[in-house]
Amino acid sequence: MSDTAQLVVEGLRASVEGKEILNGVDLVVPAGEIHALMGPNGSGKSTLAYTLMGHPSYAVTGGSASFAGTDLLPLAADERARLGVFLCFQYPTSIPGVSVVNFLRAALKAQGREMPAREFLRTLSAVMRELNIDESFRSRYINDGFSGGEKKRMEILQLALLRPRLAILDETDSGLDVDALRTVAEGVGKVAGPDMGLLVITHYPRILEYLRPDVVHVLHRGRVVVSGGHDLARRIESDGYDPILGAGTAGTAARNETKGAL
């Protein structure tokens, strides 16, 4: 088991600024599978994503997380990335003065995947065309002054070039118009394959219609409270979280929170 590239999260607890956000997350994402993670706003989805990526502000207070048999928790973010973990940021950071090309080359080099300049540029052009990103973005500074949609596409561009073994997409579909969503979803679909596990955090079933997840999880108050098939996402779309959360762990407060979120 240990050599298959699967993500195993058990009883993961994490806090930020002393506040416990993850309260024992259990989750397994095997290689080749697409898992969706849904849940009301503030349920801890981004916190889980950051914690798995190794963001220094998120302190793990219990449980475990491993990928491909390697304990992730002692590793720094860059080490996790080199192990094959990738995060599509909900709000990608800009780094003024660092061009897209230089950033990508630095990332590829760090991951031991340096390409000759011409091959790199050819590959880059091809992916940019697929994602409908103008060539001029090559020399733009990464995410600097990009629109929301441009940033999301830039994340998928990186996903496509870096070809990780586990990709966590944090609301990559939020804020995209219908066409951009299709472009992005198709981009992700193309990258996905038997060697990659995908954890797609989303509010909307639309992207899941493209990606057809194997499993849908619902996170609530820092725990995975329900898991099911693709139809779970459709149920959430038509009925909201209430019927799902109301039955189990969710109280009234959670229901209010949920209504607000949807």
Binding site: P56, D78, A81, F86, A110
Partner: peptide
Amino acid sequence: DDDQRFYAHSRGIEP
């Protein structure tokens, strides 16, 4: 900026 750092680290770039 720590966010810029984390973003770069998340792509495998060493600190």
